[in-house]
Design a protein around this nucleic acid. Sequence first.
DNA 1: TGCCCCCTGCAG
DNA 2: CTGCAGGGGGCA
Length: 291
Amino acid sequence: MPELPEVEIIKIFLAQNIVGLRIKSVEILNEKSFIGDFALLTDKKIISVGRRAKVLRIGFESLELLIHLKMSGQIVFKRHEIRDTRKHSFIGGHPTLDMFGELPNKSTRVIINLSDDSTLFFNDQRKFGWMKLLDHESGVMGHEFFGKMGPEPLGDGFSLEVFKKNLLRRKKTPVKVALLDQEVVAGIGNIYACETCFLAGVDPRKKVLDLHDKELQKLYEGIIESLKNGIKYGGSSKTHFANPEGKKGLFLDYAFVYGREKLPCKNCGSLIQKIKLGGRGTFYCSQCQVD
DNA sequence: TGCCCCCTGCAG
DNA sequence: CTGCAGGGGGCA
């Protein structure tokens, strides 16, 4: 589900809502969803919430909890004053937790009870996601885990030069597949890779080696623009994604190609094509995305 | 660099 | 029933 924009939206929400609270208890409903000793979290105070690539980072004084939502993960925040989400649901536009049903639900894997009686649910239908608890002593925190990852595309370290250098390590790879490589740029997933190629006017099948300098420039700008738009519209809610209070994202309404197979291109009117690249569905406009 | 796999559920 | 889904680790 989540790519950089969706994880960023969750991060922003959690930063405003759980920092300063303590962990009251953790319940593991699926063993493989939590790596590490969850009991260590008891009574620990949350001091920071961050993001690196598609990974959420929740910081404690001597511990860090990493969360990767993979394809179907959700973080749901249930405020303490809401006893029964179904009876207290709003009508019309307000975010509600209704989309999650009763909580915990069938796909809830971990429950984190917080000191003010609010609750975090880690839901993950496909069980690909994980929570990992790291400690300072293990030396895993920070560089070792994230060491090989490329730059944050919305951060200061992401220059055109760095982008070109990293991308060109994948010379024979189709450009859209190379954009998915987290060592090239961190945080791009299938939706934003497709959108980036469209914004750059580049055929997603084109090998990195064959890209002109102008195309590299436009890809660089396209990455930043598509990701910023993703955040601006609250993320992509194809199936699973909603922010922690149940608000869905609207980005796919504004997407140019992703999910628009056989629909007219918003730029030229010709029909959007769907192909498979690197095993992933890939959408593009054969008129707008050519040499 | 390209599969297969980890899973569950939904659409065709 | 088959195939597909916002990810990515491991293996040849």
